[in-house]
Structures are given as C-alpha cells and as structure tokens.
Design a protein around this nucleic acid. Structure first.
Lengths: 329, 329
DNA sequence: TTGTACGCGTTATCAG
DNA sequence: CTGATAACGCGTACAA
C-alpha cells in the first residue's frame, strides 16, 4: 500500500480511504489511486483490516455432516446471504463430536470468524462455562434444530405443527391405526415431531400403535420396518421423521412383499431431492431449506440488539404416491 | 496478550512462544502463562498471526453448486484433511459464474486464504491475465475436473479409462447398438468420458448409434430419453455421463412403457448415494469422492516444489439392476 | 479534501 | 531459556 501511495503521489491514508470509503475522495485522486493499484496489482490485506478492528467478515457454520444433502442445501442459502452481505463462509464439520465442535468454535474466539450459525442443535462448550459465555458475545443463531440455550435465536419451521398436520392428513384419509418412526433421542427435532404427531393423533382419535426410534438414516428405516411389520396388529400408515428413514422403510417393506401405498401408506419429512424420484414418489413435509439458510445469514449479518428474534418459516405437505387411504381387504 | 504477560510476570515474547512453540519454554513458566491465560481467558488472535506472516491457515474451495451432493462429499474429504492439518475451509459457491468465481478468489489475493481447491474446472481470471498469474503463486489444485492451465495439478479418476471400461462391459454382455448421454460441451469431464466410451466401443466393435448432450441433471436425462427412444433404430444400452441423467432417462423411459433393464440397459456415472435406492438400482462408475477430497487437501497442505503432482485415484464399476444383457425379442 | 502519527496483536531477531 | 524491539498493513483521530 505504501508503494501505491508513492506511485499515486498521495499519502497512505488516502489510499486506505480509496478502498474503504471511495466517496470521500475527489474523483481525480481516486482515479490515480486505482490506476496505481492496478499497475502494482495491489489488494487490501484482509488480515490487517480484521486486526484493525472491523471484524473478519467471516461467518462460521457448524454442521454434523456436510455430506448430507439436507445440510448442504441449507449451506447454499447461507452462502448466498453471506455473499450478498460481503461475508465469507467457513465450515466446520463436527461429526457430532463435542471435541471437534469446540475446536471449530475456537475460530470465533480467535477472531477468525465473527459470527456463528449452528446446524447441529448443539452450542459448543458446556452450559455455563466461560468458553460458552465468551462465544455467545458474538452473533449466534441455530437453524433447523433448536438449541437448549434460550439466548440463541432459532430459524426453521414449526416442527410440532408440521407433524400435527401429518396426523390430520392421515385421519382425514381414513386411517385409524398408525405408527411413527422417530429420530434419535437427543434431538429436539425428534421430540417436537413426535409430540406434534401425538397431539394431532389424539385430537382426531387416531391410534398410534407404536413408535420406533431411528437415526435419520435409510438403514434405521429398514430396521424399523422389520420391527413394525412383525407387530401383531399392522398399522395402515407410517409417519417417519425423515425422508431417509421413510425410504429405508419402504425398501424393506417392498422386499418383504408389502406394497406401498396399497397396504401401508408412508409419509416422510424434509422433502430431500430424491423423494420425488423415489418409487413410489414420497409424500413428505417440505422445509424451505434455502430460505432458512438465507434467513440465518441475514440474522447474523444484521445483528443488532433488536434483531435477535427467532424466525419461523412455513412448511408444506407435499402429496405424492407413497400416501393413500387405507385399503379395505 | 500484554495483560497475560504482566499477570504471569514474563515478557510478551515469552507468551508468544508459549503458544507457538511450547517446547522451547521451561515447564515452570509455561505453566504460569497457561494459568494466566486461563484466568484472563485469552486466545491468540489469528488475524494478527496471519498478518505477521504465517499465512491464514485457510483453504478456499470453489465449487459450482454446493447443494449438489456430489460436491458436498468431496468437501467432506477436504474438510477432514484440512482439519487434521490445522487448516480451516472457506467455501465459495460460484454458480458457474465467472464474476462470482473471481470475487471469491479475491480471498486468496487478499491473504484471507492461502490455498485454493477448484471443483468446477475453471481457474478464476482470464488465462494470461495478471490476476491469474498472481493467484497461481499460491497452492492450487483441481479436483474431479481438470482445468486448462497445465500448471495446476489434478486429483481425480481417469475418466477416459472409466468410460472405456463401461464400453467393454456393454460389449462383453453382448450389446451391439448403444447410445451415449454426455455432459455439457465446456466440461473436460464430458469430453473425456465421451472419448473413452468411443475408444472402448471402437475396440470392441460396438456401434454408437448417437450421442445426446445433457447438462448432468435429471431433467436433461428425461429430455435425452425423448430423443433416443424415438430414433429409428433403438439402442439396447445407454451410457449416461452422470447418475442424475441416467435416472432421468430411466424415469422417462418407464413412463413411456419401456422397461429397464429388460428393453434397455442403463449405466450411470458417479455412484451418488441415491443410486442404490433407485428402482432399478443403478449400475454406475464409482468415484472415490472422499479420498479425492482428502488427497486434494493433502496436496495443498504439503505444497512443496516436489509435490505438485497430479493424483489419479482408482475408479470402480458397480454392478446393479439397471444393467443386463440385451434381450432377444 | 488530504496528510501525520499511532496502535491493533503477533512473531523474528538479536542480546543476554 | 528469556527479554527487548521492530515490523507486518491497515484505519482513524487529529491537524492542516
């Protein structure tokens, strides 16, 4: 930068202003400085800028598995929102391990990132610890899955209401005996969806024959099928808390000669890309993942005292072939 | 850090060493410094460190679509390799647009990142431009898709050989008349796969009735099906340059009452997660995406003069239900 | 509108 | 093994 100043015949400060507040300069000198920078092919050093105090312009995103398409689409929304605000996105795959989560989160304490978006329902560092307290001085929002810490705003859909909608849908179609394949125990998602489904079922006199605990994977969906299909009384419909589990269930059911939706109707959750291509095409609850990502990015970017509000986005039940009324046989 | 020094009763430089080269200190003072840092809950400022000259410890990854599972799995490998080397991963979704690509790449020039991994087959900035020359002073590697610039090492599979393998496979099964659904024209991937398929077909006397240009999407696979199925002579097998196109083709074929693999055998490329769940399960070429990501990360991390070598990883043809011998009818 | 001077937090260098 | 000091590149009072 010093060289640029010399070449343009101005002071260092002027060059600095040329990049941070171009309007404050006379067009003539601005022009000269641009020319000089071009010649020397100079670029501002973002580290120096960050050090000086403007923040690093980086948003850190913590997620449990970046290979999972569900998260990568959220990430796309975040990336888009961040980019438009001139921010960059740093990712940390925590693989669900607290140690990795904390290691990544250190980027915030070390000022390499100045905001944090949580996609895995966990705030790094133990509740009440100094590490967490320090972390929460920065903008932090939770997406898709809520976190325990009440201070952290949430961006996502109303999972309770969505699951209730599914129960209503099943009841309306005439189902009376159903089953639920839930997510793992620790997750707020699992709890909310199970709760909503229960509430909706109760309200409409639907009997839930049983609930199986899965892990959001196709494999656990398969296992759930083994269990459910050998119950003494077979449900006429199943609600899975994720599309992967729904697909696993259907695959296993078909392998056993049980037809979907003719003998059992299936409803999933998330509307991942392949739900539409799956045979039978999956009826499911769509989450506006892209919009969720954007909303989260917007939240941390415009982080003022007033804006620390949760954002609940609308969900939508997408009707496809895996769902139908119960068959009289 | 100054405060830590005071509290521990040592000089600034000593505190610095405590974090960058702990072994160089006497256990006693190290202990005191750790204690003091703990008390003041101090963390090194990575911006200052980067400014001072060590590099930022960040790897920038440029990709065309982070919502695409193919890339996110590559990203997972990169993230893992980077993390183990103490590096962080910054992502830039270019959406295929040169402007966005250059904007992201600026992070390298601005010293916010000190290495670059290219997932979209394009080097930012025009060939021969000063911007590109400057960029290439940093460690840069291309993954999955080659780039024009000969200086940039490539990490991926041998696409020509893989496509040749597919042709051989078809010939061995007894097919004689086949078709190819290729990728878009600009991509080296398309060219290499088409070339390998042609070569393999020629070597075995396989006749390629025609080639359709797709865009790696299910939708373009559907369109390709419309075209191919109305050719005067119908091929008995189709090789698609991506699984998405293969699935689109199959879906459209089935919708027209053409059975796969009974009337037409289909082979895809990539082995994305859903290929196994698809009905019929897709025969395809597997790329070791995770290993590719890791290899790329390792390459930029250990970037010495000697290590600028391309890495070719082994591919594998995965046999599933969408492929079979031609039916005599 | 433009210039001067200082400090941000680290680390490399050189002494001790 | 430890201490003192300069320098990294930038932004910002403050002065002109």
């Amino acid at each position: 930068m010093r060289q640029v100043a010399e070449r343009a015949g101005v002071a260092l400060a002027t060059v600095s202003r040329a990049f941070s507040a171009p309007t404050k300069l006379s067009p003539a000198t601005l022009r000269r400085i641009e020319q000089a920078s071009e010649d020397l092919d100079y670029t501002v050093n973002l580290n120096a800028r960050a050090l000086r105090g403007q923040g690093s312009g980086v948003i850190l995103v913590l997620l449990p598995d970046i290979g999972n398409p569900f998260f990568s689409l959220l990430l796309k929304g975040i990336e888009e929102g961040a980019r438009e605000a001139g921010q960059a996105v740093l990712i940390g795959d925590t693989a669900g391990e607290p140690a990795l989560r904390e290691r990544s989160a250190l980027q915030v304490q070390a000022r390499a990132a100045d905001a944090l978006i949580l996609l895995d329902g966990q705030v790094p560092f133990a509740a009440g610890s100094r590490g967490r307290a320090r972390l929460l001085r920065a903008p932090v929002v939770a997406v898709s899955e809520r976190v325990r810490d009440e201070v952290v705003p949430y961006v996502g859909i109303d999972n309770v209401a969505a699951a209730r909608d599914v129960a209503t849908l099943l009841a309306d179609a005439g189902h009376q005996h159903v089953a639920h394949i839930g997510g793992p125990d620790g997750s707020s998602l699992s709890a909310e969806r199970a709760e909503g489904f229960r509430a909706g079922a109760a309200a409409r006199g639907l009997s839930i024959l049983g609930t199986v605990v899965g892990r959001f994977t196709t494999e656990s969906g398969r296992k759930a099928a083994e269990a459910i299909l050998s119950w003494p009384q077979r449900p006429t419909a199943v609600f899975a808390a994720s599309d992967e589990m729904a697909m696993g269930f259907i695959a296993a059911a078909q392998a056993r000669g049980v037809s979907v939706p003719d003998e059992i109707a299936v409803v999933g959750f998330d509307d991942i890309a392949f739900s539409e291509l799956f045979a039978p095409a999956l009826t499911t609850v769509r989450q506006p993942r892209h919009a969720m990502g954007r909303a989260a990015a917007d939240l941390v970017v415009r982080w003022r005292a007033g804006s620390r509000r949760s954002v609940i986005l609308p969900h939508e039940v997408v009707m496809r072939d895996s769902f139908g009324p119960p068959r009289r046989r």
